[in-house]
Write a protein that binds this DNA or RNA. Structure first.
Length: 510
RNA sequence: GGUCCCUUCGUCUAUCGGUUAGGACAUCUGGUUUUCAACCAGGAAAGAGGGGUUCGACUCCCCUAGGGACUGCCA
């Protein structure tokens, strides 16, 4: 092993004096480092959750860093959207977010230090030259695909081009032409291999010879991502890097920087990406990739999202419902799965339903009232629904369904009868309904128990079961919309609305 | 093309050489019932394929197939 990698025992045996106080104290520091490309991706949210949980589980710190080194693509709006998504999920950082762009000078300083130490060198090879090399390789690949085979010369040329890049200027004896614009390039050894002991991916080795000599500092003096992550992680005292496994191979590119600077290496965990229900990498085509859609459109609760996302790729025996405190107590890196998991909205629904039922009535109502369908309603209807929230929240899997379950409380008289509800309303039923009305009119206190008592009494006096009147009542009151217990429906609608709905149909039938 | 990774019921997963391969969601059947929902009971449902190693393999090794990541002066 090339003096690095990390062992599975936790923050690596930091040989020498730890240069960072956190390591001295063995305090865990994790970070989530999104690039501001517009919104918080659901997969990123899960990664953030893992980082957050691990920090909490170990009594450490969870930090945020915005990777905005690409100024072209970074906007304040995107940064705000990501922070907003994180905050909604309750995954705010323990310190204000670090903006990577503000640290360019420090990055450059490290690049020059690496040159001084011989771990990197100035290189005048241009991006265009490199691109030409890749283009030529691609051309030969296409030729091979088209013609089935290649001449020996072409095959050799292609093999050569496909090899990891080695600049002629890596040889210290070869002086850079005076005046030439240069980048600072990382020097990769030609022999030996690097080993990473990743908590998720296991112990994986890669030959240095398979690694490109990547650019650390661009010709304009700005740092590349590969340099910036390492410097920032080091300076921020990050002990545990938990990130998407699309970065796994990048680890092998970054480790030489730690080695060149003689910095202790962090512990790595590369978690698999989330796939769509069809098993393909999650993309916009699948719908909901941005977490704000889960909140604003799909109507899920943040605690449900945390629970669901946690179970996607992590497990603790047979446990499914894992509230935050339990998650913090149980979370560990070794419970993470290696294979990508698919998003399953049906399961998310069931988890969310659980948390909706537990949630405070006022909170559920407040969340629901922010939705567009709520904004279209009048004051009476809203207060009716507010009063019904406790009875309705446990019946819906999300706020969209909550709307559906609350529909019977909105004013739509005369109620249009749907499907089975219409079938209930025959002449006999109308007549019975008409005889019921006076009995209910006698109810002084329009409350659920009083209504129930009146209904029971009515059934006894007429020697019928509730089954004879219940379905009809339900039909005229709700039109077939989902609704709870019939006495509760009467109570929730309020005396006036209930009678109005009943009268509409009682009279119509004579 | 190269390097690396992945593969247990439809889905998320348990199992860490010996189990009737367990749980959850979904699904199906039955029950309860004032529609839908909820609830209760029960059922069906899995180790990608092929070779090894072993007394014994879902577990270890190899090959194949399928999927994925990386291969930028993007992050």
């Amino acid at each position: 092993m090339e003096r690095g990698g990390c062992d599975l025992q936790g923050p690596r045996s930091r040989v020498g004096q730890p240069q960072n106080p956190y390591w001295t104290l063995m305090t865990v520091v994790t970070r989530f480092a999104p690039s501001p490309t517009g919104y918080l991706h659901i997969g990123g949210a899960r990664t953030a959750l893992f980082c957050w949980l691990y920090a909490r589980a170990k009594g450490g710190k969870f930090l945020l860093r915005i990777e905005d080194t690409d100024k072209e693509r970074s906007t304040q709006a995107a940064i705000d959207a990501i922070l907003d998504g994180l905050n909604w999920l309750g995954l705010g950082g323990d310190e204000p977010p670090v903006l990577q762009s503000t640290r360019a000078a420090r990055h450059a300083e490290v690049a020059h230090e690496l040159v001084k130490r011989g771990a990197a060198y100035h290189c005048p090879v241009t991006a265009e030259e490199l691109q030409a090399r890749r283009d030529e390789a691609e051309g030969l690949q296409k030729k091979k695909a088209a013609e089935g085979s290649l001449s020996d010369a072409d095959a050799a040329r292609m093999a050569d081009l496909l090899k990891p890049f080695r600049s002629p200027w890596r040889d210290p004896a070869k002086p850079v032409p005076p005046g030439a614009a240069t980048v600072i390039r990382l020097r990769m050894p030609d022999t030996r291999e690097l080993t990473v002991a990743d908590h998720v991916q296991g112990t994986v080795s890669r030959a240095y010879a398979d690694l490109d000599e990547l650019v650390l500092l661009r010709s304009d003096g700005s740092p590349t991502y590969m340099l910036a992550v390492v410097v920032d992680d080091h300076d921020m005292g990050v002990t545990h890097v938990i990130r998407g496994d699309d970065h796994f191979l990048n680890t092998f590119r970054q480790l030489p920087i730690y080695i060149g600077m003689d910095w202790p290496q962090p512990d790595y965990s590369h978690v698999p990406l989330i796939h769509g229900p069809d098993g393909k990498k999650l993309s916009k085509r699948h719908g909901a990739t941005a977490v704000d859609e889960y909140r604003d459109v799909l109507g899920y609760l943040p605690e449900a999202m945390r629970n669901y996302l946690l179970r996607l790729g992590w497990s603790h025996g047979d446990d499914e419902i894992i509230p935050d405190d339990q998650a913090i107590a149980w979370f560990d890196l070794d419970g993470l799965n290696k294979a990508p998991a698919r998003l399953d909205f049906v399961k998310l629904d069931s988890v969310n339903k659980h948390y909706m039922a537990l949630a405070d009535d006022q909170r559920v109502f407040a969340l629901w009232s922010a939705r567009p369908e709520a904004k279209a309603l009048g004051v009476d209807e809203l207060s009716r629904i507010e009063a019904a929230t406790g009875a309705l929240k446990g019946r819906a899997a999300n706020l969209v369904q909550f709307s559906e379950h609350a529909r019977f409380l909105t004013n739509l008289r005369p109620i249009a009868l749907e499907g089975k509800a219409a079938a209930q309303l025959n002449d006999e039923a109308r007549t019975r309904l008409s005889t019921l009305l006076p009995a209910l009119e006698g109810v002084q206190d329009w409350s659920e128990p009083a209504i129930k008592a009146a209904l029971t009494q009515f059934c006894e006096q007429n020697s019928i079961s509730l089954g004879k009147i219940g379905p009809v009542l339900r039909a005229v009151l709700t039109g077939g919309a989902p609704a709870p217990d019939i006495t509760l429906v009467l109570a929730l609608l309020g005396r006036n609305e209930a009678f109005a709905r009943m009268s509409d149909h009682a009279r119509a039938g004579g």
